[in-house]
Design a protein around this nucleic acid. Sequence first.
DNA 1: CGATCACGTGGTATCGATTACAGGGGCGTA
DNA 2: TACGCCCCTGTAATCGATACCACGTGATCG
Lengths: 334, 334
Amino acid sequence: MIEGVRSVTTIKDVAQHAGVSTATVSRVLNGHAAPTPETRTRVLAAVEELGYRPNALARSLRTTSTKTLGLVISDLVNPFFAEIARAVEEEARAHGYCVIVANADESADQLLTYVRTLLDRRVDGLLVCPATDDPSWLAEVEQRGVPLVLLDRTVPDASCPVVRADGAQALADLAEALKAAGHQRVGVIAGPPDTSTGRERLEQFARGGLDLRVVHGDFRRESGARAAAELLDAPDRPTALVAMDNLMGLGALEELRRRGLTVPADVGLAVYDDQPWFPLLDPPITVIAQPTVEMGHAAARSLLALVAGEQPADVQLTARLVVRGSCGEATGAA
Amino acid sequence: MIEGVRSVTTIKDVAQHAGVSTATVSRVLNGHAAPTPETRTRVLAAVEELGYRPNALARSLRTTSTKTLGLVISDLVNPFFAEIARAVEEEARAHGYCVIVANADESADQLLTYVRTLLDRRVDGLLVCPATDDPSWLAEVEQRGVPLVLLDRTVPDASCPVVRADGAQALADLAEALKAAGHQRVGVIAGPPDTSTGRERLEQFARGGLDLRVVHGDFRRESGARAAAELLDAPDRPTALVAMDNLMGLGALEELRRRGLTVPADVGLAVYDDQPWFPLLDPPITVIAQPTVEMGHAAARSLLALVAGEQPADVQLTARLVVRGSCGEATGAA
DNA sequence: CGATCACGTGGTATCGATTACAGGGGCGTA
DNA sequence: TACGCCCCTGTAATCGATACCACGTGATCG
């Protein structure tokens, strides 16, 4: 398996083959000015014949535009983020942009590394779901003057557009639904206190007037199981659990199953973030659903606007409560 | 919000600031040769002070190496591929490589587009999960002489390393398990006939000696529901369904639920690809589990070996049957 | 009929890095 | 003291494209 000669067809080869200058080839390829239809066809023929494809690196170096957006998400295997990534990519592609997806794995270090890598590659814009509040990476982005949009989560003093889903009302509704079903002591499997979503969801839910026990997880599956275990082992066990993220919800479910506890008879359950399989469980899980696809689309649009020199406003979508059954029935008592 | 001056710190600025030539700066940054410790520190100080970061585009243009791998997957929201993507990226990162993930959305057109885009950006190697058998994109990759490794699926005449999971034994085991549980007429929700995995899984399962009804889906959720509906509406309804992919399995489950059919009492079910939530269903779903993480790691390793000029062999991992309960109990009768 | 204009085209500088080559200074050795 | 070698450094070519500028030619207008 001798490696074929690496095809090094450059614009120069095309020019030579077509009997024109490289400048002309470039003009034809970029639809610039107006080369004669005849030269145009000659050049295109040469391109075709040689199978020429322009070197995007060289082009970007010269034009300082890569037609590429960077997307840093906190966890690729979290379906919530996977869906967002897909939506972002879809919207970007529709506008002729390509997306580089980087996976920070909920680690601040890796986030910084990736932000740097993406900046080094001169992405035209950056979309970030911050892993933590740590804003050290922000300075680098701002210094380089690269358009930035935050997605899902915020960081303390970011002066850039933010796209998120507001769950305040949904969380209030959830609190009401829990009360209506007779729950008072509720165990919360919260997100990390150093993430905006972790804090906010907890805070907003806390306004619901329930008696909360809180354990913080890290938005991942194992932490959900651990947190559930801790809450269930407490002396006055909560009558319901609320997981503030779908993966932690999954972990909690696993723990409940391990203990042979029935939902909602033994303990109620609600989860932030809907998943297609939640309705399939018995009972189907009550959730707070976020408009992930819209979030992704909106974020990409905002970033592209920013890249184009506009000043997009923040986007605030709304999450909504979907009552299914895992919290129990509302008792007749008001 | 006046946009700050886009920081254009180049190697020239660093050189000037440190009172050396650009060549020296480059040498320091690349650990080349041996600049005096003193100049070295002076250069590094300048780098630090100016917050200089090399332009990866320019560097790659010159060195013809991007330290980047391209990964084209068929569907980012399919957790199977998401997990593979994560594993690939993890392994690549450990070797100092960055991964550009492209999502073909099970479309051959989009796959071709992305392969081109990635080649244009001069990735050092390409990892592809082909959406279909259509091998038109292959020629372009080979012509450019870019190292290529196929992942999960094959295409007809690819002369490159392939990393996959062999499910022949698992499918045979599944057939046995179904028979043992008293199933004879089995409905198969197969993958597209123009994908290697679609064909192979069906073919291998067909060797199990069951009476099969086959409907082809497209590896996505909706098609799973449609196929299930079709199979269940047939005059002699199968007593069990087998979905050859987790998303189609999800769709099938939804359809069963819609019809109020109980698993496994009314109809048995098994799915190819395990998912963390399958054990949580009642009854838990019997699956064929693939070693996704290992596949991703192996694929990245193979590609990196190829990039390094070695000749990695094909990797054949094995999928295995995990019997849970959704196919019913084995009856005493042999 | 001569001057001007416009258009198509080629030459060449440039983007920001790497690297081959050449030169200068210090040191060791004869 | 003089020669030579080696090490460090700078100069400049180069990667592959784009874009500014200038030039030649054919058309137009006065």
